[in-house]
Amino acid sequence: MGYPAHIEYTLHLADNALILGHRNSEWTGHGPILEQDIALSNIALDLIGQARYLYQYAARMIDSDVTEDTLAYGRDAWDFRNCLLVEQENGDWGKTVLRQFLFSAWQYFFYGRLQQSQDRDLAAIAEKSLKEVTYHLRWGSEWVIRLGDGTKESHARMERALDQLWKFTGELFVPAAYERALSVAGVAVDLHSIRSSWEERVAEVLGEAQLTEGAGDTWMQNGGKEGRHTEHLGYLLAEMQFLQRTYPGCEW
């Protein structure tokens, strides 16, 4: 593959939202309690909605037969530009809410900056999405605190989840090649500029949750933003893309 940087960047943001939205949707009908089943399904829909705006915009830039659907359902794992964190398996409820919290905290500061992008379309999508993400962050924070500072069992599960996910947080702040050029041009967010805000917020919530942050010397996994994914993405895509792959262009 290899679209121009501007398109790659838009796809990166779209893929982040779609993959996490899909992961969350796997909980629909399986939530621990009806009310939370609805809450997480709402978040899934918000994220898939954000992904649609971004894919539509990318498709307009590509300017051919490409549509939002072909971008979501027609690309292979190595074409996907999402970060590794969002494709990780749901695990238990604790791992799912922790993943949401870590990513929503990033999206919160990220969209805050993207609103000032020179690209008016991306800025508008950021502005609309930020309201949703503000709620996701609040929801995720509440759950992390509730379970981290909960029972012995819930605390142990959250510690385990943190151990499993922390190594994927470094990638959130390592710019891919397509991001570097665009951030100089004022289109992409300079990831360095949101790092300390993210670290502060995460430390604050983890502190309140009685959880110990990942060690500073944790080896950070990398590569999702450039198409090198963990084995989980392939399985996710196989399920998500099955229908369009089997019956291309199928509508209902």
């Binding site: 009310e35 939370q36 809450a39 709620y135 609040r138 509440e142 509730r146």
Partner: peptide, 20 residues
């Protein structure tokens, strides 16, 4: 009506269940 562990969660759940 809905189920929730405490008041804060009840308001969050209400937001998701009744104000969509």
């Amino acid at each position: 009506s809905l189920h929730a562990a405490d008041a804060a969660m009840a308001i969050e759940n209400a937001r998701d269940v009744y104000t969509r």
